[in-house]
Design a protein around this nucleic acid. Sequence first.
DNA 1: CGCCAATACTTGAGGTGTCAAATACAAATG
DNA 2: CATTTGTATTTGACACCTCAAGTATTGGCG
Lengths: 173, 173
Amino acid sequence: MSSRKAALKSVPLVLDAETRAHDDHHASLRLWLRLLSCTGQIESRIRQRLQLSFNTTLPRFDLMAQLERAPEGLKMSELSQRLMVTGGNVTGITDGLEKEGLVVREVDIADRRINRVKLTSDGARQFRRMAAEHEQWIADLFSALSPRQKGHLMALLGELKAHVIGSKRGTTP
Amino acid sequence: MSSRKAALKSVPLVLDAETRAHDDHHASLRLWLRLLSCTGQIESRIRQRLQLSFNTTLPRFDLMAQLERAPEGLKMSELSQRLMVTGGNVTGITDGLEKEGLVVREVDIADRRINRVKLTSDGARQFRRMAAEHEQWIADLFSALSPRQKGHLMALLGELKAHVIGSKRGTTP
DNA sequence: CGCCAATACTTGAGGTGTCAAATACAAATG
DNA sequence: CATTTGTATTTGACACCTCAAGTATTGGCG
């Protein structure tokens, strides 16, 4: 109701360093939340479909996908590396798949510490069915973006990933 | 060894639909894997730091973050919605936080089915300490991108997310 | 040969996550 | 007011996932 205007807060023409930092922090935070929610949504859709269509899970699917490209089988440790999960985890998932007959463990002749894991023919057949559908799901989920946009997104994520991985120093030397 | 050239497979000047579809599928798949690995890397870095610096976890942090913006407290169901996880999960995380005295459950006077969850003053203090560091971590992790690039990434992910969420029909109506 | 460190994997405890069934309370209905 | 219906949360069974400790087995070294 007052008529005074002089007391309104001034709008600086040049933003100070602190303000810029604050804005950037905020932008990064929002970006991170969007990245997280985007990935989460897609992942949850895939899990859901894997469950509905094939009564399986993403980690199982991922493990089988690795095995499919390695007809000679993979060591547990190799699976662990490729799936970027711990060895104990691989043990558990492999147990489940083995119980369902989709996969077999074969003790290495030369070094009996080693377990070589292979797809059974049943597992291979089942995986091929799943892989085809899976690829289509992904294509559909990403169909909102043009090839050009996909390339752009790929590049931006590439830079981000490189920086994140590159700065992995300083934890426990 | 033959000198005949006519039998070489022709290279079409215009790619057929099948080839285009195949390439697009492949691009989508690679993009998805990169998205996944990027998010995973960042998430794992944050988890690691939360563990090292504050001996806590990401879900606990996220729950406390929600409570900080709601001094009157939140119902379990509200937490469930905001964190995008199931109610059972919220129960578990809240149990842990309550055991450590960072959070309290208060039964609603008017409707005794409702549990209102609040940060304790101890929890609030601890959260503020964590939040400041957390924001800095994020800013650092995303510092590889210019503000312009951040904006671009934000927009691309926005389109992707909108499409994914928009196509959520067709499961169980 | 015999011991010992390194390697490959498994096990067990603890925190997340999901779903479906159980519990506790409230509201609507007759 | 008693019964039914609905809502808020918890519980229990599984599946992941990590870390740290345990078990086998190998290969080197005295």
